[in-house]
Computed example of a mutant assay.
Amino acid sequence: MAQIAYHGGMHNHTDLQASSLLHAVSLDGFAFVSAENMGTLLASSGELEDWAGFVDSWNHLEPDRYLAAKGRFRRRRHATFSATAQSPVVPEPHQAHFQALQYNALQGDIERWFEPISAAVVAGSTLRAILTFCNEFFSSLASPAPRWHIEVHQFRIEATAGVAGEPTPEGSHRDGVDYVLVLLVNRHNIASGTTTIHAPDGRLLGEFTLARPLDAALIHDPRVFHGVTPVMPLVADEPAFRDVLVVTFRAVPSEAATGST
């Protein structure tokens, strides 16, 4: 796996990169970001000093028992945060993940309680840098910038020679939030796993394979649908998996409590 060694500090071209991405998301509803550019952007928001431990935490995810009940398999953990454009991102008490049936036909309209993301990851510098970047970026797109309900999901999709891994078993979908970051953390011995962006009428708007750690997609969820093609192992008898971090931002009234989404 590639080593990540980005450190904090604003680079001269970081503002131009961020401005270009803001324009793309505003214009098209999405943007794909290469690992090099994402690393530079994250470095302007914090340190990635605990990257190795952050990556290793995907080895300790728990099975998604809700999806297993549908005959499919993946591993995940979940955490909730809140923020405003003027305040730092802070963790909230562990709570259920909820999506309306209109956004998740496979698992909608139920409260899903997943195992929490570990305290070390929540308090670590890498996740803090990621969430700080997201808060700054997504708050710049929202006018006026609201109070955010933030959810963080760790996903591991595994594949075997006989069974493809399904990163988005619900198909091309929206999450029912305002903004989404999909960040590749690791992938091993897999083919495909291409992120696709579709218009509401089904037209393909863009596609990009998250191939290297920190490759990312930024999505304005109300405007476009997103999905990921199934993954298959390259070598049949070796472990095959795709590890991603998904961060969602949903605007809530400033006086409201941070309920689940």
Rank of each mutant, 00 (worst) to 15 (best):
A5G: 15
H7V: 13
G8K: 00
M10K: 12
H11F: 15
S19F: 11
D28K: 07
D28I: 04
G29H: 07
F32R: 02
V33C: 09
A35R: 09
N37W: 05
G39R: 02
L41P: 06
G46E: 06
E47D: 13
F54P: 01
F54H: 05
V55W: 05
D56V: 10
W58P: 05
W58K: 10
H60L: 03
D64C: 14
Y66A: 02
A68L: 06
K70L: 00
G71A: 14
R75E: 13
R75Q: 14
R76N: 15
A83G: 10
T84N: 14
Q86I: 13
S87D: 04
P88S: 12
V90N: 08
Q99M: 05
L106K: 07
Q107T: 09
R112Q: 06
W113T: 08
E115H: 13
A119Q: 13
A129I: 01
A129L: 07
L131T: 03
N135A: 10
F138Q: 14
P144K: 15
P144M: 03
H153P: 02
A161R: 12
H173T: 04
R174T: 08
G176Q: 00
L181Y: 00
L181S: 02
L184H: 02
V185Y: 01
R187E: 07
T196L: 13
A199F: 07
A199H: 07
L210P: 01
R212C: 00
P213L: 06
I219P: 04
D221K: 15
P222I: 08
H226S: 09
V231W: 00
M232W: 11
E238W: 11
L245H: 07
T258G: 14
